[in-house]
């Protein structure tokens, strides 16, 4: 067995800081979300891309209601807090009166697909130049793990204890594929936070989405598959594989639409 390094203090050798505890644009990283949650990594990627693109001093986040809402007071970003499901409409009004700002929404699958499905569809169809980000973990995490409209078949939740049965609970909605054909939509992608490689891919998707908004090309949408080991009733260490095997086989990651020239 190799020796364990002392990691309580910064190195004495000459070195450059690559990542600090608090990512850029996050004022306070300490939070009360569950162990193994995929949402902090998704949010981190989103705000870091905004910073990397030099858009921080124009950005406004419109937050839905979910576990991620606890980040709305700790981001170093202007935040407009919306009601459950309503963020795309607030984003529309905000962007219309502040056209030079970069407006993005953060919603979960319960927020966007259950409570506010028509809001995001109409916002996309109108081609509003905003970026909607959906954190999709297939459950209502904040209520403790209940079925949403993206819960995959067979998935056990608090109100589908024997697994989601299409005869009883219907079929899940593939949100990204549903929005992509709309004419107002310029960019649609689905990423995942279950491993570092996917997070690297996700960051490229987020970058494209915000570039699309910056360049006024239309509506952009990034769906992010995130782990919810608590709501999935599994160990945290099993969550990345569960995401890959159960969720990503139905909600497949990838770039689904990129209407930019040369894309």
């Amino acid at each position: 067995m190799s020796e364990i390094l002392e990691t309580a203090t910064p190195p004495k050798r000459k070195a450059k800081l690559v990542d600090d505890f608090e990512p850029s644009l996050i004022l306070e990283g300490k939070h009360q979300l569950c162990a193994g949650c995929g949402e902090p990594a998704a949010l981190r990627s989103t705000v870091e891309i905004i910073d990397e693109l030099g858009l921080a001093d124009r950005a406004i986040g419109v937050f839905g209601i979910g576990c991620y809402t606890s980040f709305s007071p700790v981001l170093d970003l202007e935040v407009l807090q919306a009601l459950h499901g309503r963020a795309p409409s607030l984003a529309t009004g905000l962007k219309r009166v502040q056209p030079d700002s970069i407006v993005f929404t953060i919603q979960g699958d319960g927020d966007m697909v259950n409570e506010g499905l028509q809001e995001v569809i109409h916002t996309a169809a109108r081609g509003e130049p905003v970026t909607c980000v959906m954190l999709n973990n297939g459950v209502f995490g904040e209520t403790g793990g209940h079925m949403t409209s993206t819960t995959v078949l067979g998935q056990r939740t608090k109100n589908t204890l024997e697994g989601r049965d299409p005869k009883q609970h219907g079929f899940p909605i593939r949100m990204a594929e549903m929005l992509a054909p709309l004419d107002g939509v310029a960019y649609v992608a689905r990423g995942a936070t279950n491993n570092a490689g996917n997070i690297f891919q996700l960051r490229k998707m987020l970058q494209s989405a915000f570039e699309v908004q910056r360049d006024g090309l239309g509506f952009s949408f990034v769906e992010i598959l995130t782990m919810c080991p608590t709501g999935w009733f599994i160990q945290t260490g099993e969550a990345p594989d569960y995401l890959a095997d159960k969720m990503a086989s139905y909600h497949q990651p990838g770039i689904i639409k990129d209407a930019r020239e040369g894309a």
Partner: peptide, 16 residues
Amino acid sequence: ALICPDFVFQVWRYDE
């Protein structure tokens, strides 16, 4: 650092 939900890591790259 990218995957950690609790921002536990500070990452340094040695000059050499």
